[in-house]
Nucleic acid binder design. Structure first.
Lengths: 346, 346
DNA sequence: CGGCCTTGCTAAATCGTGTTAGCAAGCTCA
DNA sequence: TGAGCTTGCTAACACGATTTAGCAAGGCCG
């Protein structure tokens, strides 16, 4: 608290002009309003010399804009996904001179509402509504008049807000195609399937990945060789599902796991059964967690572009703030394959 | 933009009083300054009826306090650790009516400096300097006059800022003691050791855990049976280190892995060598990643209290903001054991 | 010579709140 | 009865920027 921050009035005094003049010069409207080049130079010099930085709080009061965005998430503690998505958002925001408030609702509507209020109290210029697993949700009424973007989330009802999500259907198609191209015909599913409705509740990813897989298999005149629904996609369930699979089909040749944690369980079960990857069984998976690299051999996995999702959401939000159209478009980002050693020809 | 937000002046007008009176009543100084109960009631009624919420930007300009904190991290994308620590900080902040700016430096001093400036521009009330792996760092001069707390980080030089870190020495002691209590005498180390200086550079956790392990072993008249330094604590290195270990000692009985990712690699190598956990080998580890639960059997691991660290940092910061002492104390939080099935009697 | 335009700058209002100083009315009391 | 006190409230300024309106000086022109 000792040193006071240098204020616009200080700059003006040093340059020997009024603070109006200083403000005009520093906001670039100097020439437009006929401030002489000599004075402009003096103001800029004083500003640089004193190390002047405008007080954004004051600007916020005057202009109603705070160069601040809010990110409302259901949880930020879901490992890599959360981290990368937030990282992308933070970086994109910083690139444009914005800062990010981050809040967490734990799925509680009361907390969410309080959080949104807290952000509105601080006059954020826009808000991103995020979920750490892709899902569908309604947009709170309070946000219909503030620039808003849905991140990793699809709107439940009609809304002005655009959405940014990974293109999971395409990823599902690519996963099935990858195995078909390797010559496999009997493709087992761990995590969801075999029917189109055999997916964990409330998860968009499961539904869309399965849709893509079905599309490609049907086009080739095939059905999944088997499907094993898991309601929580963690290694123990992947292990159990693969265990079931092996009882019905002792020598599977190709498995699609619905994410890398399931794949971890699948690896454990296959290895305990004495089956080698990829020589005996080919495995392909989704998410591209760090774990995909740590399994032996690494599992080929489709990488959700978390960082790009966060980045794109910020860019859409800034466009909306700048007065862009901001239609309720759904932006689907590609989910590229990270090939490792888990797929071999049939 | 359509509906204007309701302002203090609106409340005052509705209640038929001056905005001074409304301000006094709503800030609780009404009785102190002899506003009659009847008027106080009217003001509060009007405020509730209109749904008045003070404009924090304006308050910030007037009082210089924004009810906002900054969290400056080297990276937020390091999985669970980052997420939980940030989650703890966010929740503690919210509990006290504060919001959190989160920024990421990627270890670049220029970005860090720009980030701190951006937060100062927005008049944060205090800043937390965080690292996602425990390390030592200097406090930028710009922060010596703003309330500051180091989170998961120790100060390199003299500073006013207190620090919050996990008590890694105690965790190291407890790990060694756990194996000694189970009757083990030959204890192998994967990730660091055997000598006190055999630690990855710049990591406080490695150094302190090793110190604790040494303390307990020495007190029992023992030395580590072997030590295997890994410069990056990831599964492939854990696998390689354990591979080395098995060449020197084909039948190890007890292993301390310096984190769960190393333990993952150790599991892989032990299982490939046909050794069973815990019947043949006991394994204990640190960090308590989700992965610790996913290994079969789960690995007993010392849990870094990430959420508590974040929470405590916010509490210290708020105490400092409230004018507390804010001495340069180092707060060490306990690192409790999460026992699973990876340790058996010798 | 008086009205009008241009040039180059500034005074003052504004955003929404907190805070200091003080005012009007009624009461007390010598 | 009038000085002084209490009660209950408000006017006005401050925070630090932006923005609107406008002023003074000089030149031009009929």
């Amino acid at each position: 608290m000792s040193h006071k921050r240098v204020t616009l009035a200080d700059v003006a005094r040093t340059a020997g002009v009024s603070s109006t003049t200083a403000s005009l010069v520093l906001s670039g409207r100097g020439s437009e309003l006929r401030i002489s080049p000599a004075v402009q130079e003096r103001v800029r010099g004083a500003s640089a010399e004193l190390g002047y930085r405008p007080n954004i709080v004051s600007v916020g009061l005057r202009k109603g804009t705070t160069r601040t965005l809010g990110l409302v998430s259901d949880t930020v503690a879901t490992g890599q996904m959360a981290g990368d998505m937030i990282k992308g958002a933070i970086e994109a925001a910083r690139d444009h001179g914005y800062m990010l408030f981050i809040g967490e609702t734990e799925g509680d509507p009361a907390i969410e509402s309080a959080l949104i209020d807290a952000m509105l109290d601080r006059r954020v210029d826009g808000i991103m509504l995020t979920s750490m697993f892709t899902r569908t949700r309604a947009v709170p009424a309070a946000l219909e008049r503030l620039p808003t973007v849905l991140l990793n989330t699809l709107p439940a009802g009609p809304t002005r807000a655009p959405a940014v999500v990974p293109d999971e259907v395409a990823a599902g198609r690519a996963a099935a195609q990858l195995l078909l191209d390797a010559g496999h015909r009997d493709i087992h599913l761990v995590g969801a399937g075999p029917g189109a409705d055999d997916v964990p509740p409330d998860t968009v990813a499961g539904h869309e990945r399965l849709t893509g897989i079905h599309e490609v298999l049907h086009a080739a005149g095939l059905e999944p060789a088997s499907g094993h629904l898991c309601d929580d996609w963690v290694p123990p369930q992947g292990w159990a599902a693969t265990h079931d699979l092996l009882e019905q089909h002792p020598r599977p040749r190709a498995v699609i796991c619905f994410n890398d944690r399931l794949a971890f369980g699948t690896y454990q079960a296959l290895q305990e059964a004495g089956l080698r990857i990829p020589d005996d069984v080919s495995v392909v998976s989704f998410d591209n967690y760090p774990m995909a690299d740590w399994l032996r051999p690494g599992v080929s996995s489709f990488a959700i572009p978390h960082e790009a999702l966060g980045r794109r959401a910020v860019e859409l939000l800034l466009a909306e703030i700048a007065g862009g159209p901001g239609g309720p478009d759904v932006h689907r980002l590609p989910v590229p394959l990270r090939a490792r050693g888990s797929v071999a020809p049939a």
